[in-house]
C-alpha cells in the first residue's frame, strides 16, 4: 500500500467522521431551533411543522413516533431523557400520554394565550398539557342496515349478535376508550359491559382502520372506530355512515380524544418552544387538521369544518377526567390482556 493512498484514505475518513458527528449537532446556535417529539401520525403532523418553519423562520427538528403498537415510543425517550432533556415540545396524539408525562415530572406548565377558548375538560388545569384538534370515538355503520345503532350498548344487544367488530383493546384509542368507560361507569358496570360484549360474539380486528374496512365491506354491521377512520371511508364513497353514539340526555356521551401539546421541563429552547405550542393551539392549525385526511374536530368554537364533521359544541361529550383515565388505563392492562386471550 502506498503511504500517500493511506494518508488520503485516513483524511477522507476523518473528515467524514467529523461531518457525521457535526451533522447531528445544531450547526449554529444563532439560528433559532426547536426540537419537538411527535406522536401524532407523521403524515399529518409534518406539514403543520413545515408551515411553522416557513412562517417563523425557526428550524424544527423532529423525532416522530411510529404507529402505536409498533412504536418504541418517543414518549419513552422523553422519560429516559428526563434528567437531560433534548426536546422542547411534545405533541401527543392523545391526552393519556400527556398525563403520564405530567405524573412523571417530565412536562412543565404553560398556559398558552391561544388556549383560552378551548373547553376546560380538554386542558390540564395547571397547564401541564393542552388539548387541541380531536378525534371522536364514533360508530361506523354499514348503510345497508335497516336500523342504526345509536349507542355503544348495541355491542351487548342480542339483535346485533355476531354482527359487531372492535379493534384489539390492547392497543391505541380503543384502550383509552375502555379505560374511560371504567372511569365513567365504575369497575363493576364496565366489567359487565365487557363480558356482555364478549358473550354477544364481538369480533376482534387488528386496528380501527381494519374494523372500518370490515364494516364498509359489509362483513359486520358496525364498529367503534375513530372519527377519522369513518370520515375517510365516507370520502372514499364507501357505503357507510357515521354515528356519534350515546347522545341522549341520560347516556354517557361521545368519548373525545384530543391531541395534546406540552412543554418539556428544562427545555433547551424555551422561547421557541412556547411559540410552537402557541402555533399548534391556534385556530389556523385546527383548521388545517380539520381539512386534512385526518379530519380532526377543532376544539375552538368558531373554526370552519368539513361537512362530514359536527362542531364540538353540538356533540354530547363524555365527561371524564383524563388524569383518572390515564391511571385507569395502566390499572386495567392485565384485565384487558385476559379479556383478549380468554
Amino acid at each position: 500500500m502506498k503511504t500517500r493512498d493511506l494518508i488520503i484514505g485516513i483524511v477522507i475518513l476523518v473528515v467524514a467522521l467529523l461531518l457525521f458527528w457535526k451533522s447531528g449537532q445544531e450547526m449554529t446556535e444563532k439560528r433559532p431551533v426547536v426540537v419537538v417529539y411527535v406522536s401524532e401520525d407523521r403524515v399529518f403532523s409534518e406539514p403543520i411543522l413545515k408551515d411553522f418553519e416557513k412562517e417563523t423562520g425557526i428550524t424544527v427538528k423532529a423525532v416522530y413516533d411510529t404507529e402505536e403498537a409498533k412504536s418504541t415510543g418517543v414518549m419513552n425517550r422523553l422519560i429516559a431523557e428526563k434528567s437531560n432533556p433534548q426536546a422542547d415540545v411534545y405533541w401527543a396524539n392523545e391526552p393519556i400520554r400527556a398525563e403520564i408525562l405530567k405524573q412523571k415530572g417530565v412536562s412543565a406548565p404553560y398556559l398558552s394565550p391561544n388556549a383560552k377558548e378551548i373547553p376546560k375538560i380538554f386542558k390540564d388545569p395547571d397547564g401541564f398539557w393542552t388539548g387541541f384538534s380531536a378525534r371522536a370515538r364514533v360508530l361506523i355503520v354499514n348503510s345497508g342496515i335497516n336500523e342504526r345503532p345509536e349507542s355503544i350498548l348495541a355491542y351487548t344487544e342480542t339483535r346485533w349478535r355476531g354482527k359487531s367488530v372492535i379493534a384489539n383493546p390492547l392497543f391505541g384509542t380503543t384502550t383509552a376508550h375502555i379505560a374511560a368507560l371504567f372511569t365513567y361507569w365504575g369497575d363493576d358496570r364496565a366489567d359487565a359491559f365487557m363480558r356482555a360484549m364478549k358473550r354477544n360474539g364481538v369480533a376482534l380486528s387488528t386496528s380501527n382502520g381494519e374494523s372500518a374496512d370490515f364494516v364498509a365491506a359489509g362483513r359486520y354491521a358496525f364498529s367503534l372506530v375513530d372519527s377519522d377512520d369513518a370520515v375517510n371511508r365516507i370520502r372514499q364513497g364507501r357505503p357507510v355512515t357515521m354515528v356519534y353514539p350515546d347522545q341522549k340526555p341520560d347516556e354517557p356521551g361521545c368519548f373525545i380524544v384530543p391531541n395534546a401539546v406540552l412543554l418539556i421541563k428544562g427545555a433547551p429552547h424555551p422561547k421557541e418552544a412556547r411559540r410552537l405550542v402557541d402555533y399548534l393551539l391556534s385556530k389556523e392549525t385546527e383548521h388545517k387538521l380539520a381539512f386534512a385526511d385526518c379530519a380532526q374536530i377543532p376544539l375552538h368554537p368558531d373554526v370552519e369544518i368539513p361537512e362530514e364533521l359536527q362542531p364540538i359544541d353540538t356533540i354530547r361529550i363524555m365527561q371524564v377526567d383524563y388524569a383518572k383515565v390515564a391511571a385507569k388505563l395502566l390499572e386495567i392492562q392485565p384485565y384487558l390482556k385476559r379479556w383478549v386471550s380468554e
Binding site: 447531528g24 449537532q25 426540537v35 407523521r42 427538528k61 423532529a62 423525532v63 416522530y64 409498533k70
Partner: peptide, 14 residues
C-alpha cells in the same frame, strides 16, 4: 438525534 432519521425509520414513521 432529532431531525436526523434514516430511510427505514422514515418509512416506519410514515
Amino acid at each position: 438525534p432529532p431531525g436526523h432519521d434514516t430511510l427505514p425509520v422514515r418509512i416506519f414513521t410514515l
